[in-house]
Design a protein around this nucleic acid. Structure first.
Length: 151
DNA sequence: GCCAACGTTGGC
DNA sequence: GCCAACGTTGGC
């Protein structure tokens, strides 16, 4: 089992939005970055991920999701008129992948970026060192430390 | 709202 | 294959 972190702009898709979905499930689509794609494709059903609100204020981890469906072709890349449509993607060999996630539970209260930065053991987190990656791995150790913050 | 960092595109 | 121009991300 591996651990991950998924970034989303809450104005685009928030934790509240996820809660309103039937069964708390959502297709995690629209990723158009090769490094992020690599991680999506490494995900296995049963893996867990932090759900992180970027941009909006404050930036924080708001919940935990489970990967319920491993990588499959992202349908939005072939949707005519979709903002994330990719005309260069070949349907016989789709370029972009998506996974399906399901809400597990809230992190209460949310854990802000500022709080994470104050913990020396977390200074190596991808989140705190690479600003632009929207799908990223979290080490088992980091996962544990963060859960302990709200234990 | 600004802007640094970074990924992508396309002309050569 | 290089690299300048451009677009986007996301912290501040």
């Amino acid at each position: 089992m591996s651990y991950w972190l998924l970034k989303t702009e809450p104005s685009d898709f928030s934790w509240e939005n996820l809660k309103q979905k039937p069964d708390g499930r959502e297709i995690w689509d629209g990723v158009r970055n090769y490094q992020a794609r690599k991680y999506l494709r490494e995900m296995q059903a049963g893996d867990r991920a932090f759900f992180y609100h970027s941009k909006g204020r404050p930036q924080q981890i708001v919940g935990i999701v489970e990967i319920v469906r491993a990588a499959f072709p992202d349908p939005t890349q072939f949707e005519p008129g979709h903002p994330r449509q990719d005309p260069k993607s070949n349907p016989a060999d789709p370029r972009w992948s998506a996974v399906e996630v399901k809400r597990v539970r809230d992190i209460h209260p949310p854990i802000g970026r500022e709080e994470l930065k104050r913990i020396p053991e977390l200074c190596g987190m991808v989140l705190l060192n690479n600003t632009r990656l929207s799908v990223q791995p979290v080490s088992g150790k980091e996962w544990e430390i963060i859960l302990e913050l709200r234990a």
